[in-house]
Every structure is written in C-alpha cells, then in structure tokens.
Design a protein around this nucleic acid. Structure first.
Lengths: 140, 140
DNA sequence: AATAATTGGTTAGTGTAACGTACTATCTGC
DNA sequence: GCAGATAGTACGTTACACTAACCAATTATT
C-alpha cells in the first residue's frame, strides 16, 4: 500500500511530463491541444459526433464547437450520412492528415529522446506494462 | 527506431488514461483540473507568483487568474512577503489542504486499481523507469 | 397510421484557462 | 538618484468544457 503511493505518483508525474511534451508540440504546430487530440482520434477513423464524444471523453455539445473550429481551420469536415438525414460523420481533410502526421512525428521524436537512455529491453517492458494498464482502464 | 514508435505511443496513450482519471477525480471533487494541479503543486510549498508559473509551466499572467479563482474558492491565499512590497507568496488554506488530500486519495485509489493486476516487481520497475524518464525531461 | 420515445446534433449561456501585450510598483546596481 | 531589472496585475482574445433546452429525424408502440 505504501508501495502504490510511489507507483501511482510516478504515473501522475510521467503523465504530466508527456502532456507538457504534447502541449509543446501543439504550440510549435500552432494547434490547440484539443484540436491535436481530435486529429489523432480521427486518424484512420470517421465517427459520428456522438461516437466522437465517446472517443474523446467529452460531452456531445462540446464536440460541436470542437469540430466547428477544426473545420474553420481546414483540418476536418462533416460529411452527410446517406440514409440518416440527422447524422454526419467527421473526417480529416488532406491538410488535417498532413498536420496530424507532422504533429505525431514531433511528439514521437521528443518522447523518443526522453526514453533514449533506457535499454532496449526496458522499452519492451514499459510498452507491455502500459498495454496492461490501458486494458485495465478500458475494462473499467 | 520502429521500436520507438511503439514505446512513445504507449506513453501517450498511458498519459491520456491517467489524465482521464485525473479529470474524473476533478469532477467528483468539484474542482477544475488547473485548480487541482495548483493544489498539488502548493502542497508543502509556498512559492511566489513567478516561481509558481515556472512550476506549472504557464505564463506569469495566467497564474494571476488561477490564484484569483483559487482564493475565491477558499483553497489558497496570497501572503505578503516582508521586505519586498511587490512580492507575495501563495499558500494553501486549511480547506485547500483538505481538498488536496482528498483529491490525492481519489487519484491514488483509482490508479492503484489500474495497476493492481501487475506483479509487485513490475511496480518497482515501472517506478524506476518513470524516474529516469522524468530525470531526462527535467534535464532537457 | 398516428403517436410516443429515442437518437443525432446544435444552440445558448456560464465558468475556466491560457496567451500576448502593456502597465504599475518596487527593488537593485552602479 | 537614476537606469534597469523584477514582481505582479489588467486587458482583450481564443479556446474548451459543462448544463439545459431544443429541433429534427428515426424507430418503437399500439
């Protein structure tokens, strides 16, 4: 139990570090954090607004404005769904895909530098543990 | 190199999971994320506004409003610094300490549940790796 | 077929938060 | 004693998330 105090604290600290890298990358790509998050989620997917809310963990109403701003920036667009005149799917534009890729590269590079010191075997181990924690989180 | 793609992605995913736990706890304690962050940073410390900006990684100007709102909520207060009439230190109120402790407990419990499946040895390993990554981040 | 309930999404209003720029007041070095 | 540097704030802008209320289209009910 006094153990968990340390692991959980480590997770929180680590999370804030990763977030700061993420936000740094956002600033460099002139993209607000929520927009960057949106791009990442839309990569390879084309969900409806409600599903998107679920993926992002925010309310449906928040997604409206988020996608509005993304459209205004030319990063994403709403597409009509044939057969349901209420619904729309959201998808990346070409520019959106481009920004997403560039952004991802930046984040990967920066984080890569941070873990560069760790031995190869630790990388694998860390990845495996993260996967298990993520599974536990998804199951919750 | 194709390796890093996996580790870094794991870090990002993990970070978002931890953040979602953090935000969940915020909602339960009726405290906005930035306020919760502030409480955590103020625990055991009593920095000036500029130092606080550094600790949080935001601009000095942002801290003014942040502390304003914290004061309005009765969580923190500004204290005059004897010998420098410009400066003030920020410190937690009794209620601030109380909320911080309760909040910390919630987060620790939730994260503890997520790592509960992992063997004890993994906890230690994860903590050690996180420490190294954090050190690399601090050095940057 | 008509009505009720559900689902998909938006609107409006509020609170929070971060930024950049410009500003005041105080302190420090020469 | 005056030129900077430093501590903090004010202001205007953008962004984001929430709640509550709403419309429109779809599906279920009888």
């Amino acid at each position: 139990m006094g153990e968990d105090l340390v692991v959980t604290d480590a997770l929180v600290q680590l999370s804030f570090l990763v977030q700061s890298v993420f936000e740094q990358a956002c600033a460099e790509h002139d993209t607000p954090p929520a927009q960057a998050r949106l791009l990442g989620v839309l990569e390879g997917r084309s969900p409806g607004m409600a599903e998107l809310a679920g993926l992002l963990g925010v309310e449906r109403a928040s997604v409206t404005g988020l996608v509005d701003r993304a459209e205004r920036r030319g990063l994403a667009r709403r597409v009509a769904v044939p057969g349901d005149r209420r619904a729309s799917r959201v998808e990346l534009t070409g520019q959106g895909r481009q920004v997403e890729a560039a952004f991802r590269t930046t984040v990967t590079d920066r984080l890569g530098a941070l873990v560069a010191d760790l031995p190869r075997s630790d990388h694998a181990h860390l990845t495996r543990m993260a996967a298990r924690i993520l599974a536990a989180g998804a199951a919750r």
